[in-house]
């Protein structure tokens, strides 16, 4: 039986993928991309979990043997910032597309270009 965390992370990735495949509004596609990103981050964090251990901040009472893996957390810290940066870029592109074409429907934009 698969763990609830893995299940949730995979479901988030798949929900995001569904939105990217099916939705026609550009902003909904971007929301789908953000959901996918969240799923990937959740998957990374849950792979680093060791049951019964605490956060990797080695203060009083938490030694090196009572902490979870710090590497996935560092990776996710990087991934979150990169996700925010790409989302900001994509949103400004969406603003420009709306100003140029007057619509956010991807099919109509494709038709206008041709």
């Amino acid at each position: 039986m698969i763990s609830a965390y893995y299940f949730g992370a995979i479901s988030l990735v798949l929900i995001g993928l569904y939105a990217v495949l099916v939705k026609k509004n550009l902003l909904k596609i971007l929301v789908g991309l953000s959901i996918m990103e969240t799923g990937v981050n959740l998957l990374l964090i849950s792979i680093g979990y060791v049951s019964g251990r605490s956060a990797p901040i080695l203060s009083e009472g938490i030694g090196p043997n009572q902490a979870v893996d710090p590497i996935p957390q560092a990776l996710v810290l990087t991934a979150i910032v990169i996700g925010v940066a790409t989302t900001a870029m994509a949103l400004s592109a969406a603003i420009l597309i709306y100003e140029k074409y007057g619509t956010l429907n991807v099919e109509e934009i494709r038709r206008l270009r041709g």
Partner: peptide, 28 residues
């Protein structure tokens, strides 16, 4: 990839040495 199992290799090295090598207590 079983959930919640200890499979640290480099991570354990970081946890063991973080205090002497960097002076920080926050390993992340």
């Amino acid at each position: 990839v079983p959930f919640g199992e200890d499979r640290m290799l480099v991570g354990q090295y970081y946890l063991d040495n973080v205090k002497q090598q960097t002076g920080a207590i926050n390993a992340v």
